[in-house]
Design a protein around this nucleic acid. Structure first.
Length: 431
RNA sequence: UCCGCAGUAGCUCAACGGUAGAGCGUCCGGCUGUUAACCGGAGGGUUGGGGGUUCGAGUCCCUCCUGCGGAGCCA
């Protein structure tokens, strides 16, 4: 008797196996019980014939409530009537634990209830599929960078000061000193770029903004490459290549999951093709004004504006050269027009919003020092950051991509809260 | 933080100001191929908390709490 995972069963037809898992659902028909078992790798219909098993096996099968844990032994058979095309004829059955009051039933539930039961909700088919897509995306990201010679540099989560000074930070006590949860690894990555050339970080980041929308979490994962000697045009190419490869990879390897999520994959196909439309900020403003938006040159875009800009092509859109004053202090000014920054936002189609923000970084010591003053940032706290412009200054660029928004886009979800196992949201820290 | 909507059985929802109900889940029974199986029965409620109007409040008013949707900010 061999142990098997459900996903392996199509290759094990005719053999006897043991499957361990949880009861997803059960249907019975007098002298016949259909146990739908899930083990994390798939779903299996296990069939118990009353006439062919000992009385105890039949009674044990009858006693199983939803999500009871148990094992079954039996023969794998091909059967077109079974979901998945393969089923198990049960010979033996053993119970690990019975339960009768699993809260998430096969009918509809509200968002609040499901979020309260997030630890159990993860077992459902839909959430299972989403986590698989996230897993594939994260692996693809690491492979993308590894193959191109980038070095993973983990940035710290506890930091002494604001990275960008603008967003609200989570504050904590650090042995009597104030410390903050990191909202970006970028500043720590720039020194590493001087050490390794091409680097990236990938980890959780924290924003204490009281935002309550479908695109925001308090804790989210960000991947941030930083590249020495890279100038703005090459940065745009990198971002474009990055996104298009990731989309193609997920489309290729997560067909089953995307089908389960009822994602219309034809809407993702255009994003696998390069180039992406590149729109100068000034042109974006003009486009929006023509559409009736009341934006002025110098304004940042809201969610509706972003959606309107990305709607056209079905591909992500790259908005470039934002006014410097609405962007972060470390962004390199455009040599053509110093009031503009060499910054780019990549906006996903279908209303999923900004997935990437990036820029060329200021490489001049004097200019960076001036920017720190203009933004009222404490010079002492940034001395180490200034050092990068003091000992071998170099042009460099990078961007950050929020994983959850990308997963939401790929899966076609209407809220990022389903893209991370345990979302941290305004007023929700449990479970 | 602001604007809007909603809290009724474990869950999803009904109920004109007039006897609180259904489906699912649970429990009991029936059915030899079910596909969110089906059929019969049982149990399950301080209608979010507090106050008010009324002969009478789940329903109307005030207030607080909780959740959802959106805005701002951002990835």
């Amino acid at each position: 008797m061999q142990d098997a995972e459900i996903r392996q069963l199509p290759e094990l037809v005719g053999q006897e196996v043991r499957i361990r898992g949880w009861l997803f659902n059960k249907r019975s028909s007098g002298k016949l019980q259909f146990l739908i078992v899930r083990d994390g790798t798939g779903f299996l219909q296990a069939v118990v014939f009353k006439a062919e098993v000992p009385e105890k096996v039949w009674a044990d099968a009858e006693s199983l409530g939803q999500e009871s844990s148990f094992w079954v032994c039996g023969t794998v058979r091909e059967d077109l009537r079974a979901p998945g095309g393969v089923e198990l004829t049960v010979k033996e059955l053993g119970i690990y634990q019975l339960c009768q009051d699993y809260p998430i039933t096969p009918k509809e539930h509200g968002v609040a209830f499901l979020m309260d039961n997030r630890h159990l909700w993860l077992r459902s088919r839909r959430q299972h599929a989403i986590m698989r897509v996230r897993n594939e995306l994260c692996f693809a990201i690491r492979e993308f960078f590894y193959q191109r010679g980038f070095v993973l540099i983990d940035s710290p989560i506890l930091t002494p000061a604001a990275c960008e000074g603008t967003s609200t930070l989570f504050e904590t006590d650090y042995f009597g000193e104030k410390a903050y949860l990191s909202q970006s690894g970028q500043l720590y990555l720039e020194p590493a770029a001087a050490a390794h050339g091409k680097v990236y970080c990938f980890g959780p980041t924290f924003r204490a903004e009281k935002s309550k929308t479908r695109r925001h979490l308090m804790e989210f994962w960000m991947v941030e490459p930083e590249v020495a000697w890279m100038r703005f045009p090459e940065l745009l190419d990198l971002a474009e290549e990055f996104v298009s490869e990731l989309v193609a990879r997920v489309l290729d390897r997560c067909q089953e999951e995307l089908k389960r999520l009822e994602r219309d994959t034809s809407k993702l196909e255009p994003a696998t093709k390069r180039p992406y439309p590149r729109i100068d900020y000034a042109d974006a403003i003009a486009t929006l004004q023509a559409k009736g938006f009341s934006v002025q040159f110098g304004d940042d875009f809201g969610g509706d504006e972003e959606t309107a800009l990305a709607h056209e092509s079905g591909r992500p859109v790259m908005i470039t050269r934002y006014p410097a004053h609405i962007k972060a202090f470390y962004m390199e000014p455009d040599p053509q027009d110093p009031t503009r920054a060499l910054a780019v936002d990549v906006i996903a189609p279908e209303g999923y919003g900004e997935i990437i923000g990036g820029s060329e970084r200021i490489s001049s010591y004097e200019l960076l020092e001036q920017r720190l003053r203009e933004h009222n940032l404490p010079r002492e706290a940034f001395q180490w950051y200034l050092d990068i412009r003091r000992y071998g200054a170099f042009p460099h660029s990078g961007f950050g991509m929020g994983i959850e928004r990308v997963v939401a886009w790929l899966c076609g979800l209407d809220h990022v809260r389903e893209t991370i196992p345990y979302p941290r949201m305004l007023y929700r820290l449990y479970p």
